[in-house]
């Protein structure tokens, strides 16, 4: 068994596609009309055949309160790996991304948490080199 897809619930698929590609830098892969909504996926540009992230509509009535409660407590919906967290933090800040937690040393990892503008917080994490 392989993890082929993972998904994130977004409040606006078009806005999400722009943010996840233009701001975060993922690569657009699929856009298939599915009635009212679309099946949109993005991938890591360095690994276009790797795991796809589905930008899924958050239309279920339970999704709103669930996402709101996570955001209020600062809990990220998911986490992406980065090689240089400080550099990514500065790059995203320059693009106007707002962070609820700046770069923080958490022992084996350095993490930060930002707002994806689609109703979620996202963590980025850099594994520290074992010296």
């Amino acid at each position: 068994m392989k993890i082929v897809l993972t998904s994130i619930l977004v409040d606006d698929q078009e806005k999400a596609l722009k943010f996840y590609t233009e701001v975060l830098g993922f690569q657009f892969k699929n856009d298939i009309p599915m009635g009212e909504f679309r099946w949109i996926t993005v991938v890591d540009p360095d690994d276009p055949n790797g795991t796809e992230l589905v930008l899924e509509p958050d239309q279920h009535p339970a999704a709103g309160p669930f996402k709101k409660a996570l955001v209020e407590d600062g809990i990220p919906y998911t986490s992406f790996g980065v090689l240089d967290l400080q550099q990514e933090y500065e790059r995203l800040q320059t693009s106007g991304v707002s962070f609820t937690q700046g770069p923080t040393d958490m022992g084996p990892v350095i993490t930060a948490v930002f707002d994806d503008t689609c109703g979620n917080l996202i963590q980025i994490a850099q594994l520290k080199e074992v010296s």
């Binding site: 407590d73 600062g74 809990i75 990220p76 609820t100 937690q101 923080t104 040393d105 958490m106 022992g107 084996p108 990892v109 993490t111 948490v113 917080l121």
Partner: peptide, 17 residues
């Protein structure tokens, strides 16, 4: 060390540090 943290950050710090 850092004033102004979300619940998630406090939880992470307590667990990891």
């Amino acid at each position: 060390e850092k004033n102004g943290q979300t619940l998630f950050e406090i939880c992470s710090r307590l667990a990891m540090k």
